[in-house]
């Protein structure tokens, strides 16, 4: 383990890194096609960072985060449509609800190891999908919810796409900041200890289950906020979109994997590679043969799993180490 970098150094790196991720927006802010892609990039970067808190640092490979995402989306949309509660406030109950149901649902599943946990959380996602279709009064059923366009800061609806890009950027910045604070806190070190060796951590006096539950609550709440923002941005939500495995539930994990699971920068890197590549391929290939861009994306996923187990961040890290070794 390397030494803990100083507080100032960490936050300087954080600020510098954020500035770099803002560059593409500054350059492309006139191009609506790319601004839209950037909005999704920032959003999914934040969501992958949120997933990484339990999936990467916690070592609990969740495929059920789509449920938290959907709860946030439905809650915010429903509160806004039904009672005209501003989405800025409407995000909070969803996040609190997820911070409660997340640990409640994951608690019994924590004793499952590896793939069994993943399958259980996958089933959780499918239960969510069925329930969303069934609970018409809340979710609008299969037809979904439509939010009318009524621009205004309080409504969180904007005509200018660049504002959306900045909001999503803020979400990503928040998620990364929370991860940094978490990993420098006592809970963060407990987490790493639990991930590396659960029994040893237990023997050292760490309440393993409590650590995982707190971590789940945090991760679920952030995923819910991401869902709220997503709902207000696209303004049409329905069950197949929110509970899609390929586009939501598994994608958070995929982005984190490609970037590097269990690193702070990894999920952000992953989002900046995957989302623009996918959107671009969809635009270029989608017109000709539907599905062709997904053949490419699936192939990338397969290759990443086979040859880049530690992701881009891991590959860069290995390269860096080799160079510094040959230099010294």
């Amino acid at each position: 383990m390397s030494a803990i970098p100083s507080t100032t150094r960490t936050w300087c790196l954080y600020a510098g890194g954020l500035l770099v991720t803002l560059l593409p927006l500054a350059v492309l802010s006139g191009d609506l096609f790319w601004v839209n892609i950037l909005i999704y990039t920032y959003l999914f970067a934040g969501l992958a960072v949120a997933w990484n808190i339990i999936g990467g640092f916690g070592g609990q490979f969740s495929l059920g985060h789509g449920v938290f995402f959907a709860v946030g989306a439905y809650m915010t949309a429903r509160l806004y449509l039904g009672w005209e509660i501003s989405p800025w406030l409407g995000m909070i109950p969803g996040a609190l609800l997820c911070a409660t149901i997340g640990p409640l649902v994951f608690w019994p599943t924590f004793r499952l190891k590896g793939s069994f946990f993943a399958i259980a959380t996958l089933a959780f996602n499918e239960v969510g999908l069925v329930m969303a279709n069934y609970l018409h009064t809340v979710t609008g059923g299969p037809r979904g919810l439509q939010i009318p366009f009524k621009a205004g800061l309080g409504n969180m609806i904007f005509a200018d796409q660049c504002i959306w890009a900045l909001i999503m950027f803020g979400f990503m910045a928040l998620c990364v900041a929370i991860t940094i604070v978490l990993m420098r806190s006592r809970l963060g070190y407990y987490l790493l200890a639990v991930r590396e060796d659960e029994e040893a951590a237990h023997a050292a006096g760490i309440d393993v289950t409590r650590v995982k539950l707190r971590d789940t609550a945090l991760s679920a709440a952030l995923a819910s906020i991401g869902g709220s923002l997503f709902a207000m941005y696209i303004r049409t939500i329905d069950p197949p979109t929110l509970f899609s495995l390929a586009d939501i539930g598994v994608k958070f994990a995929l982005i984190a994997l490609i970037g590097g699971i269990g690193t702070i920068i990894g999920p952000v890197l992953g989002a900046f590679l995957i989302i623009p590549a996918e959107s671009y391929l969809r635009a270029v290939m989608g017109g000709g043969l539907p599905g062709l861009h997904l053949v490419v994306m699936g192939g990338v996923m397969l290759l990443a799993a086979l040859f880049m187990r530690r992701g881009v961040a891991g590959a860069l890290d290995a390269l860096w180490r080799r160079r510094s070794r040959s230099a010294s």
């Binding site: 490979f61 495929l63 590896g114 793939s115 993943a118 495995l245 390929a246 598994v250 994990a253 995929l254 994997l257 043969l289 539907p290 599905g291 062709l292 997904l294 053949v295 994306m297 699936g298 192939g299 990338v300 996923m301 397969l302 290759l303 990443a304 799993a305 086979l306 187990r309």
Partner: peptide, 29 residues
């Protein structure tokens, strides 16, 4: 896709999910 990942269940999830995406969409194409 499977043999290289024999010992890593979370990577199997990714690899086979990638395979799923490829197979579905090749047939779609």
């Amino acid at each position: 896709a499977i043999q290289p990942l024999q010992a890593e269940s979370s990577m199997q999830i990714f690899a086979t999910f990638g395979l799923l995406t490829v197979l579905q969409n090749v047939v779609l194409v």
